[in-house]
């Protein structure tokens, strides 16, 4: 055992600083070629990605908007069918009111004076009825009516 061995001693340092490692023949030439090839590959990948990225962004933006709208419609559905039906009923109802077949529309449904449940039906005078029929309905129609005594 050499107790006076010093790695900073110039005679030791020179020897220890020598490179003890080796590389295979032609290694540095090959590694440069490899790096060059890898960088070309990397370049190709970067080019492809640069082209495809904005298009992917656009497509995904559309997809997000569509999904968002679709989800909104799924959560809060608009009941167009009912609205249409109600509108149609109201309009047809108003025609019947105008024609005289109905004495009220849906609009005045809540007027208590016209409500048959709260207002008693007035008795129809028989004379008035005969007068009305004779004035408004012809004989042929009357003959078809099945009149009870």
């Amino acid at each position: 055992m050499r107790t006076n061995f010093n790695i900073e001693d110039p005679s030791n340092k020179e020897h220890l600083q020598e490179n003890p490692f080796k590389v295979p023949d032609g290694y540095f030439h090959n590694v440069r070629m490899n790096i060059s090839d890898k960088i070309s590959d990397q370049n190709r990948k970067i080019n492809f990605w640069t082209i495809i990225r904005p298009q992917l962004g656009l497509v995904s933006a559309f997809a997000v908007v569509f999904l968002f709208a679709y989800t909104i419609f799924q959560i809060f559905p608009t009941d167009n069918k009912n609205e249409l039906t109600t509108t149609t009923v109201i309009s047809s109802n108003s025609i019947f009111v105008e024609e005289g077949f109905l004495n009220r529309s849906f609009i005045d449904f809540f007027y208590s004076s016209l409500d048959s449940l709260t207002t008693p039906n007035t008795e129809i005078n028989q004379d008035e009825l005969f007068n009305y029929l004779s004035e408004n309905i012809d004989l042929v129609t009357l003959s078809y009516l099945d009149v009870k005594d």
Partner: peptide, 13 residues
């Protein structure tokens, strides 16, 4: 196989 140093260099490494 790619180490070519002597014993001192090996111990040092």
């Amino acid at each position: 196989p790619w180490f070519d140093g002597d014993n001192t260099q090996r111990i040092f490494r």
